[in-house]
Design a binder for these strands. Sequence first.
DNA 1: GAATTTACGTCAGCCTTGTTGACTTTCCAA
DNA 2: TTGGAAAGTCAACAAGGCTGACGTAAATTC
Lengths: 166, 166
Amino acid sequence: MVESNQGGESLLFLTDEQLRKGIEAMFFAYRAFTADPDRILEGMDYGRAHHRAIHFIHRAPGLTVTNLLTILGVTKQSLNRVLRSLIDDGLVEARVGRSDKRERNLHLTAKGAELERALSDAQRARMRAAYRAAGPVAVQGFRTVLEAMMDPEMRRQYQSLREGGV
Amino acid sequence: MVESNQGGESLLFLTDEQLRKGIEAMFFAYRAFTADPDRILEGMDYGRAHHRAIHFIHRAPGLTVTNLLTILGVTKQSLNRVLRSLIDDGLVEARVGRSDKRERNLHLTAKGAELERALSDAQRARMRAAYRAAGPVAVQGFRTVLEAMMDPEMRRQYQSLREGGV
DNA sequence: GAATTTACGTCAGCCTTGTTGACTTTCCAA
DNA sequence: TTGGAAAGTCAACAAGGCTGACGTAAATTC
C-alpha cells in the first residue's frame, strides 16, 4: 500500500493495519480493564452493571436517577433493577430531592463506599501499573486518543463530571 | 495530596484523580468504539458476539475453533451458538483440517467478507478520525498504555496474531 | 385551579450472550 | 488398541440489555 505524506508529516499511523491494531488493542485491553472488578463481584450478587452505578454515584454524589441514566446510557428499567438491589442491600441511599421532591439524590452508604473502594483499588492498581510502565507522555497520548474517539455529547459528559452533581 | 518526585521525573500522572480519569475515558471510549458496528448489526439477526467472531476469522483465516475460543475468551457452547448461525447463513465456512481432520479451519465466505468490510469500515472510520485528531505521538502512547494494561498471556496473543493461523 | 409534564418506580415479557454440566462422534497418537 | 483431544450439541440458567404499558407524586404551565 502506498502512503503519501502531507505537510511533511508521516501518515503511516493511519494505515488500515495500524487502525486494526488499535481496534484489537481496545478489545483486549478492555477485557483486562474489567477483569479485576469482575473477579471481586463474582460470588457476590452483583455484576458489572452494579459496579458502573457504584462508580458514578461515588464520583458525583447526589446525582439524580436521570443523571445516572444519561451517563450510563441504559434504560430506566434496566438501571432500576440494579439500583433496587443496591438500595435494598444498603449500599446506596436515595434521598428525596430538597428543591425538587420528585428527584432522588443518590449517595453511597458507608457499606457502599467500602465496596467502591475495593473495586476501584483493584482497577486503579492495574491502571497505575500500566501508566507507570508506559510513562507520562504515553499516558497523555492515551487520554487524547480515547477522548477523540468519543461522540461530542459523550465527551462533554466525560469532561464535565465533577463532584456535587452533574 | 502531596506528590513526591523520583529520579527527577514528575509522577503527577499517577494520582488517583488521573487514574480515575483514565478509567472513565476507557468506559466512555469503549462505548463509542462499539457503537457503529452495533448500529449496523441491529436489525440483522447478529450482535456484538458475531462481530467479534467475524473480525478474528477475517484477521487470521484458517484458524481453528479452539484458537478462536482462546482469543475470544468464551466457552465452546457460547461460541458455537454464534458460529452455528454464521455458518448456516453462509457467512463462514468451516473446512475440515488437512493434517488433523478433527480440526475445523474457519474462513469467511464472500458474503461474510462483505459484512466484515461494512463493520470494519465503520469502526476504522471512527478510529482514523480519532488518530488524525490526536496525532502520531498520541497514537503511539495510546497503543503503549493499552498494551501495558493487558495480562501477559493476552498481550502475547495480541502481538502474535497474524494471518495464516494463530 | 385545572391540565399537563416530569421524575421515578414497577410489571411483564423478550433477546443476546455469557455460564455449567453431561454426553457423543471423530480422529490422532502413544 | 486405547486414551485423550477437537468439535458439536442438548438443557438449563443468569446477567443485563430492550420495549411497552401503567401508576403516582410533584412541579409547571395555562
